[in-house]
C-alpha cells in the first residue's frame, strides 16, 4: 500500500515567502524517501486544500497541518476543504493540545486520510524551538548563561494558541538547559515588548512560535522589543536592548528540524517512517548564526 504525506498550510496572496518553510520541510521529508509522495496544499495558494488530494496517487494519505495550534483552521477549514467525510472535532479527543490523529475517507477521491494534529502542539516542537536557539546563536550547546523566551499571539484570537506557548515553555524549562524560560505574548501580559523585564540573564534567545515569517515576526515583534525603530532597516543578532543581548530567532517554522515534526506526526498516525526520523534529526542540524535583514511582508486576511 503506497503512502503519501500532504502538508497543508495557510499560504498568502501577498507574501511570496509565506509558503517557503512548507516547501522546504516537504522537500526534506521527500528526500528521505519515507513516503511514495510528498505534496503541499494551501488555503491561499495552489494547489488549494480543495484540490490537493487529487494530485496524490496514494490511497493512504497522512495530512499534517503546518499550524501552531488547534483552532479555526485545523478544526473547521481544513477538514471541510479536504472533504473529510464525517469529520467531528470530538474524534481528536483533544484538550486543545493533544490532537493526534483521526481517520476519514475523502469524499471526492475515496482516499483514506489520516488527519493529524498541527505541528505546533507536538512535543517534538520543543526540540525545534531549542534547535532554533542553537541555530541563531551558532552554539550547539547554548543554554548556560542564557534566557529563553517563546513568543505567541496570546488568547485574543484563539485560547489554544496560548496553551501551546505555555506547553513548550514548560517543556523547555524542564530540560533545565537555559537559566530562565519565559512565555511572552504579543497582545497580553507578559508582553514581548517588556522582554528585558522578565530576564536577569545578559543573553536572551527569543523564538516566536509561528510557522512562517511575516508581518508579526518580521515587523511587529522586532519593533516591539526595541531591536530596531524601523523593521525595514533590519536589526542585529544579537541586538543590545536595555543592557541585554537579544538573540531574535524569527519564526520557529523556518528551522529545518521542523521537518522532523511532520514525520513524527505521520508516525504517530501509523505511517512507517522510523528510519527517516533519525536521518532528518541529523541532516537538519545547522547551529550557524546569521544576521537578519527581513524584507517587508504584508498581512493576509
Amino acid at each position: 500500500m503506497s503512502q503519501a504525506l500532504v502538508v497543508v498550510a495557510h499560504g498568502s496572496h501577498l507574501n511570496p515567502d509565506s509558503s517557503a518553510p512548507t516547501y522546504d520541510h516537504a522537500d526534506t521529508v521527500r528526500a528521505t524517501g519515507a513516503f511514495d509522495e510528498v505534496r503541499t496544499g494551501f488555503w491561499k495558494e495552489e494547489p488549494s486544500l480543495r484540490e490537493v488530494l487529487r494530485t496524490v496517487e496514494a490511497d493512504e494519505v497522512y495530512v499534517v497541518p503546518m499550524f501552531i495550534s488547534e483552532g479555526y483552521f485545523t478544526e473547521q477549514v481544513i477538514p471541510r476543504e479536504l472533504r473529510l467525510d464525517g469529520w467531528d472535532v470530538a474524534d481528536w479527543e483533544s484538550d486543545g493540545l493533544s490532537a493526534d490523529v483521526a481517520t476519514y475517507t475523502a469524499a471526492d477521491t475515496g482516499q483514506t486520510v489520516h488527519y493529524c494534529g498541527p505541528v505546533g502542539t507536538h512535543e517534538a516542537m520543543t526540540d525545534v524551538l531549542v534547535r532554533r536557539a542553537e541555530s541563531v546563536t551558532g552554539d550547539p550547546d547554548v543554554g548556560e548563561g542564557f534566557g529563553f523566551a517563546v513568543v505567541g499571539h496570546g488568547t485574543e484570537r484563539n485560547e489554544n494558541s496560548a496553551k501551546a506557548i505555555e506547553y513548550h515553555a514548560e517543556r523547555v524549562r524542564e530540560m533545565d538547559r537555559f537559566d530562565e524560560v519565559q512565555a511572552l505574548y504579543m497582545d497580553e501580559e507578559p508582553e514581548v515588548d517588556d522582554v528585558t523585564d522578565y530576564f536577569d540573564s545578559d543573553d536572551v534567545v527569543v523564538v516566536p512560535l509561528f510557522v512562517a515569517d511575516g508581518f508579526h515576526t518580521q515587523e511587529d515583534i522586532p519593533e516591539d522589543m526595541g531591536l530596531t525603530d524601523d523593521y525595514r532597516t533590519g536589526y542585529d543578532v544579537p541586538a543590545d536592548v536595555d543592557g541585554h543581548r537579544i538573540w531574535y530567532a524569527g519564526a520557529v517554522g523556518t528551522e529545518p528540524l521542523l521537518a522532523d515534526v511532520l514525520l513524527e506526526r505521520a508516525a504517530d498516525a501509523g505511517a512507517d517512517v522510523s528510519r527517516a526520523v533519525e536521518e532528518v534529526r541529523e541532516s537538519t542540524r545547522v547551529a550557524a548564526g546569521g544576521s537578519a535583514s527581513p524584507s517587508p511582508p504584508e498581512a493576509d486576511d
Binding site: 495552489e46 494547489p47 488549494s48 484540490e51 490537493v52 487529487r54 494530485t55
Partner: peptide, 14 residues
C-alpha cells in the same frame, strides 16, 4: 507541470 499549474492535470483528466 504540477508545480507551475497545480492540480490542472488532475482536473483536466477528470
Amino acid at each position: 507541470v504540477e508545480a507551475f499549474y497545480p492540480a490542472t492535470v488532475a482536473n483536466w483528466y477528470r
